[in-house]
Amino acid sequence: MNVQKCGCKENRPQNSVRAGCSSCSTNPHKMPADSFKVPAVPISRPLHTSTKVNLNDNKEPCSSGLKCDLPGKKDDKKKSWSLSDFDLGRPLGKGKFGNVYLAREKESHYVVALKVLFKSQILDSEIEHQVRREVEIQCRLRHPNILRMYGYFHDEKRIYLILEYAKHGALYKLLKERGRFDEKTAAIYVRDLTRALVYCHAKKVIHRDIKPENLLIGHNWELKIADFGWSVHSPSSRRMTLCGTLDYLSPEMIEGKPHSYAVDIWSLGVLCYELLVGLPPFDAKDSSQTYRKIRYVIIKYPEFISEKAKDLMGKLLVINPEQRLPLTSVLQHPWILENAPEGAVPPPHNPEQGQHH
């Protein structure tokens, strides 16, 4: 099968590539940066708090019990955000279209992550619709396992997204430090991601790009879905666009068939395997081998994987989308119930503890 590759977003190491999508840059004509239109989303201001924090250290402000919006404030709508409202701190990450910085809102001292995107790069790569979609979707989602977007603003050259600060960074980084997770930790992350996906699907949102790089770890080591750049609001539930990361693409997507919410269920199974093993299940030397493994669901389970974990992954990684285990049933699966009972939280991570081998 010949599927066009795309470099629209940051790729994972080695053979993990983006499949062809409508976001690829095909138009050589550049558009002026001021032609970028941002979506109209209600903006509310963070709650005032006396918390003080040094923006250049790694200490997390105590956020216990804080609510980040004051929707009832009368002056909320009168005042728009601007860069002068924030003190900028250390960089948290870099991407193809901009950078993420630790920031503190001056009036409330509330600490956030400020994602700065360059309009010219967005327009050159023809992903304006993707950024608009990301903002429109994420601003409206409210779930403990979904990274909050508090609002946004823009100037002549840049777009600024005001995001919840996830202290411990990407799950991908944590996974690489540990090598792999024990079954209890992996089950807790799978449970919490499942809950977030149940919420997304109830809101008619398909994420379409679940992977460790797009999952962040909060102050209490809780999982949070972060990147909604490939997400769609899909009341019709059937999509044709081919997108996402190769290792996590479902069989129906690589074959160009219509896809629905079940693509997220497939990705959940892939993630479960990667958390337990340290590598995605269809990892191969080149993309053609990965495509083949996905298409025929060729999986090898290491001996240390429990039978119940294998059973869950086997029910998620099914070729026929309609036969994949529903998300509500995932939460009732014996592997989840035994390893991630209600109230169980992921253990803190100490990099000096060493890796699993």
Rank of each mutant, 00 (worst) to 15 (best):
T245S: 06
C21Q: 01
V277Y: 03
L175R: 03
D192S: 03
A262Q: 06
S63Y: 10
V190E: 09
L327P: 04
H143A: 01
S80Y: 10
A19P: 05
S82M: 05
Q353R: 05
N320D: 13
S120K: 11
A196D: 00
K315A: 09
N320A: 14
L223Q: 02
I162N: 05
P28F: 04
E156N: 10
L193E: 07
K115H: 13
S237P: 15
V116T: 04
V277G: 06
F97N: 06
N220S: 15
Q332D: 11
A340T: 03
P351D: 00
K257V: 10
L123G: 07
D209V: 07
K52Q: 09
G89S: 08
G278P: 01
L276G: 07
H349T: 09
S44A: 15
Y199K: 03
L47K: 15
I159V: 08
D85S: 10
D76W: 14
I162C: 05
D283H: 13
A309I: 02
K119L: 05
D192N: 11
L92T: 00
T194E: 02
L317C: 05
N220C: 14
E352Q: 15
Y110R: 09
L88V: 12
P302E: 10
L141Y: 01
A19G: 10
S22C: 05
I210M: 00
K115D: 13
L275A: 04
H356K: 11
P341N: 02
P212T: 01
I254C: 07
I299V: 03
L275I: 07
K106N: 03
H357L: 12
Q353M: 08
K67E: 13
D87H: 12
N350A: 07
K96F: 09
L141P: 04
H29N: 08
S267R: 03
V135P: 14
D87V: 09
N145Y: 08
Q355E: 12
H219E: 12
N11M: 14
Y165A: 11
L215P: 04
L268K: 11
P144A: 00
Q4S: 14
E322I: 06
T185C: 11
